[in-house]
Amino acid sequence: MKESLLEILRCPLDKHELELEDAEYDGEEIVAGVLVCAECGERYPIEDGIPNLLPPDMREETPA
């Protein structure tokens, strides 16, 4: 994902803004890191350049 995507990404739980932590870049792309909700503190991983913004209770229940 590009850093500018943060402008339109929000915490899926409370719709507050997200802060980027531990970012690893490949050129302009953020390939790894964590998005942290500025309000509730929930953490959302970025893996292989893709932010996983499923709410925590949906991360586990989906098929492999």
Binding site: E7, L9, C11, I50, L53, L54, P55
Partner: peptide, 15 residues
């Protein structure tokens, strides 16, 4: 540019 999400839940209002 891809986001793993449940429908539109992680996007800003009016985005």
């Amino acid at each position: 540019e891809s986001v793993r999400a449940d429908l539109v839940s992680p996007f800003a209002n009016d985005a």
